[in-house]
Design a protein around this nucleic acid. Structure first.
Lengths: 240, 240
DNA sequence: CGTGTTGTTGAACTGTCTCAAGGACGGTGG
DNA sequence: CCACCGTCCTTGAGACAGTTCAACAACACG
């Protein structure tokens, strides 16, 4: 509750960090975020692009008089375009874990892309990948039961954050129950019940924020869109 | 039931038509579609871009053992990227009304864009606009009740297809009850009940496929995301 | 160790689904 | 023009998944 000062996209940020981790990243403006720190997406029509360098982010929408919604989850490598959320949605990015963002303004982007087609291709591929993931999330939200939605979510997180060990997989859970509920369009009580059922059926176990799925294929069998998610995820790992 | 022969994206199509309607459209391959005709999106990893010239399309997903879902609705001016649906979703485009598509292969696109930056900007703007509309649809599906979802849908259709006459609006309904249900993640029976309630409360009247909303602001009041949709829609009309 | 926050669980309630029956068109052929 | 058909839509009654509210347990933090 203490470190949630909203920070506008246009607010000052630390200056860039020339040496970046993976890939050839052209430095824009580096934004380090504390856990639960918020970046407003709504202000001004400036269409920025944000690259997730490290950490996990949530895209949140908050309409007056309505419950908060978590529209999507961003992982390292993802690119988010400000224009993807209409202004009236009141969207923000929220750091689910400590995170680092790279931010690009449209003019800067155009110049970079011209001089660096490789970077442009990487951006476009990141956007395409995220777009497909959004499609899967929509499909899951509109076609699946509570338990199936949770399974889809666990597959998504497990793929991106998990380490595989012999058909089992474990990962740190970056979202709270309430955040997961807001992402899955369930209420927290219901979600807790479904979690309990899954725990007692042995599909998953959680202790101190660390989740373990002892039998990954078993989880996949509960997840209607797990296969499609995996296909998608593999595409970002294997090629290039 | 007679004219539903699936047509693969790669199947032969009529050759291009140099004189196009609005905007400066660079001819790709023109695909005319009969009502209910289907274009498979899944085959081959070729990432085409499809431009809707006329008509209304549905993006459908069909997973084995699961009900069909309508993921989004496309209107004239929309650009659809094949990559937006992961292969395993079994996605297709379906013409809700007779329609014409313009199709571009990635190589062709790159060349066109290089020589015609204006066209590229138009494409990007169309994609961005559709992306924001998808966000709203997701938000509606995961945050709204059945009645609210239907109101959001009617606003979407009304904005794109309707003629305004003094605060009232009417339009031809391009989707059947079942298609609407699949789009709204409701079952057809429930949808019919909600429609009945709306009709008897005077929000909408329908006769022979023609819908009339006598009091548009009243509908907007039922629609949680109507304002955001309108904002978005206006952006495509006014500028440029 | 309190104290506040987050997660869990029960019981009653409600919106949506299911299944099944009946109605309204829109076309076709006598 | 009517009778017939198929398809799409509507409506009721009962079942069920998910919600709500409230109480309590578990945990993190100072």
């Amino acid at each position: 509750m203490s470190d949630r000062s909203p920070q506008s996209m246009s607010a000052t940020a630390r200056s860039q960090n020339p040496d970046s981790t993976a890939h050839a990243v052209i430095p824009g403006v580096l934004l380090p975020l504390r856990k639960q720190q918020r970046v407003l997406l709504t202000q001004k029509p400036a269409d920025h692009i944000v690259l997730v360098m490290t950490g996990v982010l949530m895209v949140e929408a908050r309409l007056p008089e309505r419950d908060r919604q978590v529209l999507e989850i961003l992982f390292p490598g993802d690119a988010y375009h400000t224009q993807d959320a209409p202004g009236l949605l009141g969207a923000s990015l929220i750091a689910a874990t400590p995170a680092e963002l790279q931010r690009y303004r449209p003019e800067a982007l155009e110049a970079i892309e011209r001089s660096n087609p490789e970077f442009r291709r990487r951006l476009e591929s990141a956007m395409a990948h995220r777009s497909a993931r959004r499609t899967l999330h929509l499909a899951s939200m509109s076609g699946a039961s509570g338990e199936e939605r949770l399974a889809d979510f666990l597959v998504e997180i497990g793929l991106h954050l998990g380490r595989q060990v012999q058909g089992s997989r474990s990962f740190d859970m970056p979202l709270s129950r309430e955040e997961i509920a807001d992402y899955l369009a369930l209420n927290p009580d219901t979600l807790s019940r479904i979690f309990s059922r899954m725990k007692s059926s042995g599909v998953i176990s959680i202790s101190r924020g660390r989740a373990t799925v002892p039998d990954w294929p078993a989880l996949m069998r509960l997840s209607p869109f797990g296969a499609a998610q995996t296909e998608l995820y593999e595409q970002t790992r294997v090629p290039a």
